[in-house]
């Protein structure tokens, strides 16, 4: 895979490092990190700051029996084994582990709009927004839309282009309320994206807004 050209926003990366992203956004961010050495390095450096701010200064004594309990546990603990090579999977590990599915064909795609199929994925109870996969036919376009909150779109297969440029496998579009865009799948193959947002998408066209309750994005 080529090195990604589009990365996580620094504000998102910081929330990821701190562990405060909602779970469905976290899975998409983790999936990009799998493909992106640059963002992994930045996540590690951010963790250094996290450790500095949260662990470096203050100490509080722990009870001796807590230490005794840990020492007893490590006596019988099995060591972490180095993972064997992972079987080839269409999906990022962070997502495959979550939903127990490895290949695009195992997913239950359903028609969402002309040229667009969709799979909704489970979110945390009560979490607002959308989490799912979109499969867009070659050359088809997503309705021109803006965002209510943060939206992460990771390309898993194929590519699309919009006002921001071309997005290929491994690239992530990390967009907030300020961005309005009109993505079109490139013509060579269907484009499959993993999408998570934390507030409803705002479609610009009246027809798309009428469709929205049925699409559910």
């Amino acid at each position: 895979m080529t090195t990604p050209n589009h990365h996580l926003d620094d504000a998102t990366l910081l929330a990821y490092a701190a562990g405060t992203l909602p779970r469905h956004l976290r899975i998409v961010a983790a999936s990009h990190l799998e493909a992106c050495a640059e963002c992994r390095a930045m996540a590690r450096n951010t963790a250094e700051l996290g450790a500095t701010f949260s662990l470096k200064d203050d100490v509080e004594a722990v009870k001796p029996d807590l230490k005794a309990a840990v020492m007893a546990k490590v006596d019988t603990a099995t060591l972490h084994r180095l993972p064997v090579a992972h079987p080839r999977s269409d999906l990022p590990r962070a997502l495959a582990a979550e939903i127990g599915i490895e290949n695009f064909d195992q997913l239950k795609w359903r028609k969402a709009a002309p040229g667009i199929e969709m799979v909704k994925l489970p979110k945390e109870a009560g979490a607002p927004g959308f989490f799912g996969l979109l499969r867009v036919k070659p050359g088809a376009n997503l309705p021109d839309h803006g965002h209510g909150g943060t939206e992460l779109t990771l390309i898993l297969q194929g590519s699309y282009h919009d006002e921001l440029g071309q997005f290929r496998q491994g690239d992530i579009a990390d967009l907030d309320a300020a961005v309005q865009h009109n993505p079109v799948a490139d013509k060579d193959m269907a484009c499959i994206c993993l999408v998570a947002n934390d507030a409803p998408t705002r479609f610009r066209s009246f027809a798309a807004r009428l469709m929205q309750p049925f699409i559910g994005i």
């Binding site: 990821y16 983790a30 990190l33 996540a43 963790a47 996290g50």
Partner: peptide, 24 residues
């Protein structure tokens, strides 16, 4: 710090652990 963060995320979920990859 990363191990502690991941332990707490997994405990909060009370479900199967997520795969955490920034320190992969």
């Amino acid at each position: 710090f990363v191990i502690a963060r991941n332990v707490r995320i997994d405990r909060a979920r009370k479900l199967k652990p997520q795969v955490h990859l920034d320190f992969s």
